[in-house]
Amino acid sequence: MPGSLAKDAVKGPPLPPDAGDFGGGGPGGRGTSRRASLTGMVVLLAAITMMFAALTSAYVVRRGMSNDWNALPLPHVLFANTAVLVASSAALELARRRLKSGRRGEFNRYWTAGTVLGMLFLLGQAYAWHELKEAGIFVATNPSSSFFYVFTAAHGIHLLGGVVALIWVSVQALRLQLGPGKRTVVEVSALYWHFLDGLWVYLMVLFLFWG
């Protein structure tokens, strides 16, 4: 965070324009848009965290306060899905580093792999829903299934948005719009994706140990 609470700029002589303590350097300052994009993403992730924290607290309270909670038989495909999502994150990370060092061809390959794995994850999630449905477990069957559907749907919608972003990046890459000096969109979408990856691992832990 530029600008510090510790420095009192009200008192003391005025700062010369080039002194260290200033804002983003103004709208024209170098790197402003990059920094703002990253800040915006971090703020968005904070909001998503808050939303899932609210759902988690509802989950814990609802589970603890009544005796109608039945453990949900987790579809096994979820473990495979988890592996796929972690792999997609890894692929995106490798791609991100390749772009930083200017290896665009490798970037394209890894990025595409990550995107495909992401879509595979979503298909896997749809299959998990299908399995539950076959087993006669619907959203209203039990609070455990209600929460499972809510969590997976909320996560899935966010991830779907992520896939759209990844594809958009791929298109930009194919149009040769990206490079070591133009990679904000890559950094930001990779950050989002890693977050959703971590969020999913967290949800799996929740289902496994608190299901």
């Binding site: 009200v10 709208p27 800040t39």
Partner: peptide, 12 residues
């Protein structure tokens, strides 16, 4: 956080 002008510290 990011778009303040030069010299516009948080405490200004």
């Amino acid at each position: 956080l990011d778009l303040r002008a030069k010299g516009m510290s948080l405490m200004r």
